[in-house]
Design a protein around this nucleic acid. Structure first.
Lengths: 345, 345
DNA sequence: TTGTAGGCGTTATCAT
DNA sequence: ATGATAACGCCTACAA
């Protein structure tokens, strides 16, 4: 095992002290230009590399931040993570990504391991609003900045970056109404999570504002999976008075809905129009492209990272938490465009 | 900033020495049952948590491993990562995931930052075979185990876990031939990467073995993107003697191919059959499901992790690198099944 | 401008 | 079985 060079080795080499070497390496102002150069060149020659661990131990900072997401194989979360990376890498931080797979025990476990690994902050999208909030107290106690993105939870002093889900849902529903749909079903999801509650509320408000009848039976809780979308639509189509449109809180269940509708011999968007949520890439690539709501995930990630940077630097405990809300954008495509006056996306 | 409790605090509390506390906490055999209990209970009471950084500094191990992939928003890589996590978390390791987006400079940068962060190992799928191999020498020098998965490079002493791409391609092509296809095109990709070279070779061998004519013009290098698949097919269909089947080295370009074929008014699989590679979830969900080659990514991840664990523990420098090759599985679906004798998947 | 010395939290090696 | 001490590599008062 070839030993790594340390500042002591350099010190010996140039006939100085480790302290001086340290200062020279860190561009400390009170060091002579001559020694600075000498030290830096020698360091280079000896292949010196700073021991991050030692520095972390000393400074109390690990320069690691943890990112917790339900899953990372969705374009949405992968893109948020990319945004975070873009912002944090240049500042010397590393990003440790953990997945919860929507399981509460994994969520708790991940948080604890991250804290234990001494991350300097945690950026997360929560899986379950009911998760024991004492885990979050743990985070707060350690003065580790916590930032929620997308799926948040209302905790005093914790910042968040989300999109205006209410408005996204409102726009989507309004669009369907403008296309002439009268009975719009909603594939909702676990409404203990704010995002799904707000999508539901936006949908409801649009229905009411446009003088349509709001029918609670048309709202069905559906997991964000293709198979679940199918299942729900099967139920909906059995109603005496089936819907003529579906606004889904997820692209995945929207896809399942589309498959089931087609299988039953109905056509889209003529018989039933469909709108999803998240603008996953496949919505664009389908033979029948799917109308969806874009959430600008990369920007969401970048902003969340910026909030973290701000909080981690402020020694002052001005726990003025920020609540940033981005505006979503409705992308209209085949699955909902009956009036083909304009080209579809 | 509430100070964290250290073993010194515990020592003071119970009137012992830090060393003893450390031993008690680590279940060192030569410690009295009584003190062990006392210490452990006191530790609990004082909310003691081991400082991983200090331990890492002392032991020289960080209990972090780096995983580098071209991208993490593909089901394939996300699943490999999940497999790695499943194997490594129980052993106390953390997984730091980095993306290269197929850019060489990012790849090099990621490797260096990971090394700098003192990861105990690197598991990666390379982006570019031409990447300066001195980066890999860096890794070797530091005695950090390096394990390739899926996209590897032949480096002495480096283990790898891959699938038998040759055979996967061979089976896929053979299947197309059995369906009656005579002129099979191949959407290849950067063949400086072994996986793509082997898929090409398997394809070629199947053609030859079954007495068909091998036509180099039917092999076109195509990036793994939907838009690129479209572009390539456009070219292919302009030939005087266009193909009656397409074997793509990627599901994404296969999807683009399908879109273009349909747009030109041809039908699948009757006019042109299509087979992809990777068994991405969307291949199953399309209205016209896509035949593809499954690579058992989760298992690949688990095995790669196991190889790492073995290497990291073996102080002995028995650099007998392992080359593990998994067998792929052809999943036959609508896009290539002309003879509808059996139910499709 | 540079050196000295101590500490970050742990563990390992000697003693006792 | 337990204590004392040093060491991992770095940084930073404080001194000179």
């Amino acid at each position: 095992m070839k030993k790594k060079t340390t500042i002591y080795d350099i010190a010996k080499e140039v006939g100085l002290t480790a302290a001086t070497v340290s200062r020279a390496l860190n561009n400390n102002p009170k060091i002579s230009e001559k020694t600075r150069k000498l030290v830096q060149e020698t360091a280079q020659k000896m292949n010196y590399e700073q021991n991050t661990l030692a520095k972390a131990l000393k400074s109390g900072k690990s320069y690691n931040v943890g990112v917790i997401v339900p899953r990372m194989d969705s374009n949405f979360f992968a893109s948020v993570i990319r945004g975070i990376e873009e912002e944090l890498y240049p500042k010397g931080y590393h990003v440790i990504v953990c997945q919860t797979h929507d399981q509460e025990n994994l969520e708790t476990g991940n948080i604890n391991s991250l804290l234990n690994a001494q991350v300097d902050g945690i950026l997360m999208s929560i899986s379950n609003a009911k998760s024991k909030s004492n885990v979050f107290h743990n985070i707060a106690q350690k003065k580790v900045p916590l930032i929620f993105f997308d799926r948040k939870k209302e905790i005093p002093g914790v910042s968040s970056v989300t999109i205006d889900d209410f408005n996204g849902a409102y726009q989507a529903t309004k669009h369907l109404i403008e296309q002439g749909c009268k009975r719009i079903a909603h594939l909702s999801n676990n409404r203990s999570l704010e995002i799904f509650k707000n999508r539901y509320l936006g949908y409801k408000q649009a229905i009411i504002d446009h003088g349509l009848e709001f029918d609670e039976d048309l709202v069905i809780e559906t997991f964000s999976k293709v198979s679940e979308g199918r299942k729900t639509v099967k139920k909906l189509l059995k109603m005496k008075n089936p819907p003529d449109a579906i606004f889904s809180s997820s692209d995945f269940s929207a896809l399942g809905a589309i498959q089931e509708i087609k299988d039953q011999g109905l056509s889209i968007p003529e018989d039933i129009s469909v709108v999803g949520f998240s603008n996953e890439p496949f919505t664009k690539f389908m033979e029948l492209s799917i109308t969806s709501v874009d959430q600008s995930p990369i920007e969401m990630g970048r902003i969340a990272a910026k909030v973290f940077l701000k909080e981690v630097d402020s020694k002052t405990l001005n726990k003025e938490s920020e609540k940033i809300v981005l505006q979503p954008e409705l992308i209209i495509r085949d699955s909902s465009l009956k009036v083909k006056s304009e080209a579809s996306a």
